[in-house]
Amino acid sequence: MRKTCIDMVHELAKHDDRVVFVGSDLGVGTLDEMRWELPDRFFMEGVSEANMIGMCAGLATEGHIVYTNTIATFIARRAYEQVCLDVGHADLPVRFICNGGGLVYAPLGPTHEAIDDFALMRAIPNMTIFAAADAEEMREFMPQSLDWPHPIYIRLAKGHDPIVTKELPPFEIGKARPLIEGSDALIITTGITLRVARPALDELRAEGLDVGLLHMPTVKPLDTDAILSRASNSRAVVVVEEHSVIGGLGSAVASLLLEELASPPSFRMIGIPDQFPDIYGSQNDQLSYFGITSERVATEVRSLLRRAAA
Protein backbone atom coordinates (compact mmCIF):
# COMPACT_ATOMS: atom_id res chain seq x y z
CA MET A 1 0.00 0.00 0.00
CA ARG A 2 2.80 2.42 0.87
CA LYS A 3 4.69 1.48 -2.27
CA THR A 4 1.55 1.93 -4.37
CA CYS A 5 0.97 5.32 -2.80
CA ILE A 6 4.54 6.58 -3.08
CA ASP A 7 5.06 5.22 -6.60
CA MET A 8 1.88 6.95 -7.69
CA VAL A 9 3.22 10.28 -6.44
CA HIS A 10 5.93 9.90 -9.08
CA GLU A 11 3.34 8.97 -11.73
CA LEU A 12 1.20 11.98 -10.84
CA ALA A 13 4.26 14.25 -10.85
CA LYS A 14 5.26 13.10 -14.33
CA HIS A 15 1.95 14.31 -15.73
CA ASP A 16 1.34 17.35 -13.55
CA ASP A 17 4.08 19.83 -12.79
CA ARG A 18 2.22 21.12 -9.74
CA VAL A 19 3.07 17.91 -7.88
CA VAL A 20 6.00 17.95 -5.46
CA PHE A 21 7.17 15.40 -2.92
CA VAL A 22 8.59 16.25 0.51
CA GLY A 23 9.97 13.48 2.70
CA SER A 24 11.48 13.54 6.16
CA ASP A 25 14.61 11.38 6.31
CA LEU A 26 12.80 8.37 4.86
CA GLY A 27 14.41 5.04 4.13
CA VAL A 28 17.21 5.00 1.59
CA GLY A 29 16.01 4.61 -1.98
CA THR A 30 12.57 6.12 -1.41
CA LEU A 31 11.33 7.53 -4.72
CA ASP A 32 14.83 7.43 -6.19
CA GLU A 33 13.44 7.45 -9.71
CA MET A 34 11.51 10.63 -9.06
CA ARG A 35 14.56 12.12 -7.42
CA TRP A 36 16.64 11.57 -10.57
CA GLU A 37 13.92 12.37 -13.06
CA LEU A 38 12.35 15.40 -11.33
CA PRO A 39 15.00 16.71 -8.93
CA ASP A 40 13.40 20.16 -8.70
CA ARG A 41 10.26 18.67 -7.23
CA PHE A 42 11.75 16.12 -4.85
CA PHE A 43 12.75 17.27 -1.37
CA MET A 44 14.20 15.05 1.34
CA GLU A 45 14.31 17.07 4.53
CA GLY A 46 15.84 16.02 7.80
CA VAL A 47 14.18 14.86 10.98
CA SER A 48 12.43 18.21 11.25
CA GLU A 49 8.71 17.67 10.96
CA ALA A 50 7.60 21.13 12.07
CA ASN A 51 9.78 22.73 9.41
CA MET A 52 8.82 20.15 6.82
CA ILE A 53 5.11 20.83 7.20
CA GLY A 54 5.53 24.59 7.24
CA MET A 55 7.56 24.18 4.07
CA CYS A 56 4.77 22.10 2.53
CA ALA A 57 2.34 24.90 3.36
CA GLY A 58 4.61 27.40 1.63
CA LEU A 59 4.93 25.22 -1.47
CA ALA A 60 1.16 24.65 -1.58
CA THR A 61 0.46 28.38 -1.19
CA GLU A 62 2.49 28.89 -4.35
CA GLY A 63 0.27 26.49 -6.30
CA HIS A 64 1.92 23.13 -5.74
CA ILE A 65 0.09 19.93 -4.84
CA VAL A 66 2.28 18.65 -2.06
CA TYR A 67 2.64 14.99 -1.11
CA THR A 68 4.59 14.64 2.11
CA ASN A 69 5.52 11.47 3.91
CA THR A 70 6.74 10.37 7.30
CA ILE A 71 5.58 8.31 10.26
CA ALA A 72 1.98 9.02 11.26
CA THR A 73 2.62 10.01 14.86
CA PHE A 74 5.23 12.59 13.84
CA ILE A 75 2.68 14.33 11.65
CA ALA A 76 -0.41 13.90 13.80
CA ARG A 77 1.24 14.56 17.15
CA ARG A 78 4.62 16.28 16.89
CA ALA A 79 3.78 18.77 14.17
CA TYR A 80 0.10 19.14 15.03
CA GLU A 81 0.17 22.92 15.18
CA GLN A 82 1.79 23.20 11.75
CA VAL A 83 -0.76 20.75 10.33
CA CYS A 84 -3.60 22.62 12.02
CA LEU A 85 -2.62 26.23 11.31
CA ASP A 86 -0.23 26.32 8.36
CA VAL A 87 -2.16 23.73 6.33
CA GLY A 88 -5.62 23.33 7.91
CA HIS A 89 -6.49 26.95 8.52
CA ALA A 90 -5.09 27.91 5.13
CA ASP A 91 -7.02 24.97 3.58
CA LEU A 92 -4.09 24.00 1.35
CA PRO A 93 -3.71 20.95 -0.90
CA VAL A 94 -1.11 19.12 1.19
CA ARG A 95 -1.42 15.32 1.27
CA PHE A 96 0.04 13.79 4.43
CA ILE A 97 1.12 10.25 3.62
CA CYS A 98 1.36 8.73 7.08
CA ASN A 99 3.22 5.50 7.65
CA GLY A 100 2.11 3.11 10.34
CA GLY A 101 -1.52 3.97 11.01
CA GLY A 102 -3.02 2.32 14.08
CA LEU A 103 -0.98 -0.51 15.55
CA VAL A 104 1.35 -1.19 12.63
CA TYR A 105 4.42 -0.25 14.67
CA ALA A 106 3.43 -2.51 17.57
CA PRO A 107 7.00 -3.74 18.15
CA LEU A 108 8.18 -0.13 18.52
CA GLY A 109 5.80 0.80 21.29
CA PRO A 110 3.55 3.76 22.08
CA THR A 111 5.85 6.41 20.58
CA HIS A 112 5.14 5.08 17.10
CA GLU A 113 1.59 3.76 17.38
CA ALA A 114 -0.95 6.11 15.79
CA ILE A 115 -3.98 5.28 17.87
CA ASP A 116 -5.28 8.86 18.11
CA ASP A 117 -4.64 10.19 14.60
CA PHE A 118 -8.29 10.17 13.51
CA ALA A 119 -9.27 12.10 16.64
CA LEU A 120 -6.55 14.70 16.18
CA MET A 121 -7.19 15.15 12.46
CA ARG A 122 -10.99 15.16 12.81
CA ALA A 123 -10.65 18.18 15.09
CA ILE A 124 -8.98 20.22 12.33
CA PRO A 125 -11.50 22.05 10.13
CA ASN A 126 -10.99 21.50 6.36
CA MET A 127 -9.09 18.24 6.92
CA THR A 128 -10.03 15.14 4.94
CA ILE A 129 -9.10 11.77 6.44
CA PHE A 130 -8.55 8.71 4.29
CA ALA A 131 -7.64 5.24 5.59
CA ALA A 132 -7.17 2.60 2.92
CA ALA A 133 -8.04 -1.04 3.41
CA ASP A 134 -5.57 -2.28 0.81
CA ALA A 135 -3.36 -1.27 -2.11
CA GLU A 136 -6.29 -1.47 -4.52
CA GLU A 137 -8.23 1.17 -2.61
CA MET A 138 -5.07 3.28 -2.51
CA ARG A 139 -4.73 2.92 -6.28
CA GLU A 140 -8.26 4.26 -6.72
CA PHE A 141 -7.71 7.06 -4.25
CA MET A 142 -4.47 8.59 -5.48
CA PRO A 143 -5.64 10.08 -8.82
CA GLN A 144 -8.65 11.58 -7.02
CA SER A 145 -6.34 13.13 -4.43
CA LEU A 146 -4.74 15.34 -7.09
CA ASP A 147 -7.51 17.92 -7.41
CA TRP A 148 -9.27 17.45 -4.06
CA PRO A 149 -9.42 21.04 -2.81
CA HIS A 150 -8.53 20.37 0.85
CA PRO A 151 -5.68 18.89 2.88
CA ILE A 152 -5.78 15.10 3.22
CA TYR A 153 -4.49 12.87 5.99
CA ILE A 154 -3.66 9.53 4.36
CA ARG A 155 -3.35 6.67 6.83
CA LEU A 156 -1.22 3.82 5.54
CA ALA A 157 -1.56 0.26 6.78
CA LYS A 158 1.28 -2.20 7.23
CA GLY A 159 1.96 -3.10 3.62
CA HIS A 160 1.28 -6.36 1.78
CA ASP A 161 -2.20 -6.21 3.24
CA PRO A 162 -4.60 -8.69 1.60
CA ILE A 163 -6.77 -7.25 -1.17
CA VAL A 164 -10.28 -7.05 0.24
CA THR A 165 -11.97 -4.25 -1.70
CA LYS A 166 -12.55 -5.89 -5.06
CA GLU A 167 -16.25 -6.53 -4.40
CA LEU A 168 -16.93 -2.94 -3.38
CA PRO A 169 -18.44 -0.25 -5.60
CA PRO A 170 -15.92 2.22 -7.05
CA PHE A 171 -14.06 4.41 -4.59
CA GLU A 172 -14.92 8.09 -4.32
CA ILE A 173 -13.44 10.52 -1.77
CA GLY A 174 -16.10 11.30 0.82
CA LYS A 175 -18.32 8.33 -0.05
CA ALA A 176 -18.90 5.17 1.92
CA ARG A 177 -18.60 1.85 0.10
CA PRO A 178 -21.38 -0.65 0.91
CA LEU A 179 -20.28 -4.27 0.67
CA ILE A 180 -23.68 -5.73 1.37
CA GLU A 181 -26.99 -4.41 2.64
CA GLY A 182 -28.81 -5.87 5.64
CA SER A 183 -31.80 -4.89 7.75
CA ASP A 184 -30.93 -6.47 11.11
CA ALA A 185 -27.58 -4.91 11.88
CA LEU A 186 -24.94 -2.73 10.26
CA ILE A 187 -21.18 -3.17 10.63
CA ILE A 188 -19.10 -0.09 9.78
CA THR A 189 -15.38 -0.40 9.02
CA THR A 190 -12.50 1.78 7.96
CA GLY A 191 -8.94 0.95 6.90
CA ILE A 192 -7.89 -2.59 7.64
CA THR A 193 -10.90 -3.35 9.81
CA LEU A 194 -12.74 -4.25 6.62
CA ARG A 195 -10.70 -7.43 6.58
CA VAL A 196 -11.13 -7.86 10.33
CA ALA A 197 -14.92 -7.68 10.10
CA ARG A 198 -15.38 -9.68 6.92
CA PRO A 199 -15.35 -13.19 8.46
CA ALA A 200 -17.81 -12.01 11.13
CA LEU A 201 -20.15 -10.74 8.43
CA ASP A 202 -20.09 -14.10 6.64
CA GLU A 203 -20.58 -15.98 9.90
CA LEU A 204 -23.53 -13.85 11.03
CA ARG A 205 -25.24 -14.08 7.65
CA ALA A 206 -24.71 -17.84 7.68
CA GLU A 207 -26.58 -17.84 10.98
CA GLY A 208 -29.50 -16.22 9.19
CA LEU A 209 -28.97 -12.70 10.46
CA ASP A 210 -29.46 -10.02 7.81
CA VAL A 211 -26.31 -8.02 8.54
CA GLY A 212 -24.96 -5.28 6.26
CA LEU A 213 -21.45 -3.87 6.00
CA LEU A 214 -20.53 -0.32 5.14
CA HIS A 215 -16.87 0.39 4.55
CA MET A 216 -15.79 4.00 5.13
CA PRO A 217 -12.32 4.74 3.78
CA THR A 218 -13.09 8.45 4.16
CA VAL A 219 -13.43 9.10 7.90
CA LYS A 220 -13.91 12.83 7.29
CA PRO A 221 -15.97 14.27 5.67
CA LEU A 222 -18.35 11.67 6.99
CA ASP A 223 -20.79 10.22 4.46
CA THR A 224 -23.75 10.87 6.73
CA ASP A 225 -26.39 9.94 4.16
CA ALA A 226 -24.87 6.51 3.67
CA ILE A 227 -24.85 5.89 7.42
CA LEU A 228 -28.27 7.30 8.27
CA SER A 229 -30.12 5.65 5.40
CA ARG A 230 -28.90 2.26 6.63
CA ALA A 231 -28.76 2.80 10.41
CA SER A 232 -32.32 4.08 10.51
CA ASN A 233 -33.46 0.64 9.28
CA SER A 234 -31.13 -1.38 11.51
CA ARG A 235 -31.60 -2.53 15.06
CA ALA A 236 -27.88 -2.54 15.78
CA VAL A 237 -24.79 -0.71 14.58
CA VAL A 238 -21.22 -1.79 15.34
CA VAL A 239 -18.27 0.39 14.32
CA VAL A 240 -14.90 -1.33 14.27
CA GLU A 241 -11.69 0.65 13.90
CA GLU A 242 -7.99 0.39 14.63
CA HIS A 243 -8.09 3.53 16.75
CA SER A 244 -8.87 4.74 20.24
CA VAL A 245 -12.55 4.60 21.10
CA ILE A 246 -12.17 8.32 21.81
CA GLY A 247 -12.60 10.60 18.84
CA GLY A 248 -12.44 8.23 15.90
CA LEU A 249 -14.96 6.95 13.39
CA GLY A 250 -16.99 5.32 16.18
CA SER A 251 -17.36 8.65 17.96
CA ALA A 252 -18.34 10.35 14.72
CA VAL A 253 -21.02 7.75 13.96
CA ALA A 254 -22.30 7.75 17.55
CA SER A 255 -22.81 11.51 17.50
CA LEU A 256 -24.52 11.33 14.15
CA LEU A 257 -26.95 8.59 15.19
CA LEU A 258 -27.83 10.28 18.46
CA GLU A 259 -28.36 13.66 16.87
CA GLU A 260 -30.25 12.60 13.76
CA LEU A 261 -32.35 9.56 14.67
CA ALA A 262 -35.38 9.71 16.94
CA SER A 263 -34.83 6.08 17.94
CA PRO A 264 -31.14 5.32 17.47
CA PRO A 265 -30.21 1.67 17.06
CA SER A 266 -28.26 -0.21 19.72
CA PHE A 267 -24.65 0.79 19.25
CA ARG A 268 -21.17 -0.48 20.02
CA MET A 269 -17.68 0.79 19.27
CA ILE A 270 -14.87 -1.69 18.87
CA GLY A 271 -11.49 -0.02 19.13
CA ILE A 272 -8.57 0.56 21.44
CA PRO A 273 -9.67 1.42 24.97
CA ASP A 274 -8.51 4.65 26.59
CA GLN A 275 -4.96 3.52 27.28
CA PHE A 276 -1.54 3.45 25.67
CA PRO A 277 -0.64 0.08 24.19
CA ASP A 278 1.18 -1.77 26.96
CA ILE A 279 2.40 -4.85 25.11
CA TYR A 280 4.70 -5.34 22.12
CA GLY A 281 4.33 -8.13 19.60
CA SER A 282 2.87 -7.69 16.11
CA GLN A 283 -0.01 -5.60 14.80
CA ASN A 284 -2.15 -8.76 14.82
CA ASP A 285 -1.08 -9.54 18.39
CA GLN A 286 -2.26 -6.13 19.50
CA LEU A 287 -5.48 -6.28 17.49
CA SER A 288 -6.26 -9.51 19.35
CA TYR A 289 -5.16 -8.02 22.68
CA PHE A 290 -7.54 -5.11 22.28
CA GLY A 291 -10.37 -7.27 20.95
CA ILE A 292 -10.38 -5.79 17.46
CA THR A 293 -11.21 -9.18 16.00
CA SER A 294 -13.77 -10.91 13.88
CA GLU A 295 -14.96 -12.95 16.88
CA ARG A 296 -15.61 -9.80 18.88
CA VAL A 297 -17.50 -8.19 16.00
CA ALA A 298 -19.76 -11.24 15.71
CA THR A 299 -20.27 -11.39 19.48
CA GLU A 300 -21.16 -7.71 19.73
CA VAL A 301 -23.63 -7.88 16.84
CA ARG A 302 -25.38 -10.90 18.38
CA SER A 303 -25.44 -9.27 21.79
CA LEU A 304 -26.85 -5.99 20.47
CA LEU A 305 -29.53 -7.79 18.49
CA ARG A 306 -30.54 -9.78 21.59
CA ARG A 307 -30.71 -6.54 23.56
CA ALA A 308 -32.77 -4.87 20.83
CA ALA A 309 -35.17 -7.81 20.78
CA ALA A 310 -35.60 -7.86 24.57
Binding site: V20, D40, R41, F43, A50, N51, M52, I53, G54, M55, C56, A57, G58, L59, A60, T61, E62, G63, H64, E81, Q82, L85, D86, H89, A90
Partner: peptide, 22 residues
Protein backbone atom coordinates in the same frame (compact mmCIF):
# COMPACT_ATOMS: atom_id res chain seq x y z
CA UNK B 1 0.58 33.92 5.94
CA UNK B 2 -1.54 33.65 9.07
CA UNK B 3 0.82 33.90 11.98
CA UNK B 4 0.60 34.55 15.68
CA UNK B 5 1.69 31.22 16.99
CA UNK B 6 5.42 31.82 16.97
CA UNK B 7 7.89 29.79 14.98
CA UNK B 8 5.79 29.13 11.85
CA UNK B 9 6.66 31.85 9.36
CA UNK B 10 10.21 30.86 8.50
CA UNK B 11 9.27 27.37 7.30
CA UNK B 12 6.37 28.73 5.27
CA UNK B 13 8.80 31.21 3.74
CA UNK B 14 11.24 28.41 2.95
CA UNK B 15 8.52 26.52 1.08
CA UNK B 16 7.69 29.63 -0.89
CA UNK B 17 11.33 30.34 -1.65
CA UNK B 18 11.72 26.76 -2.89
CA UNK B 19 8.64 27.23 -5.09
CA UNK B 20 10.24 30.39 -6.50
CA UNK B 21 13.35 28.40 -7.26
CA UNK B 22 11.34 25.61 -8.95
Amino acid sequence: ASTGSLGHGLSIGIGRALAGRV
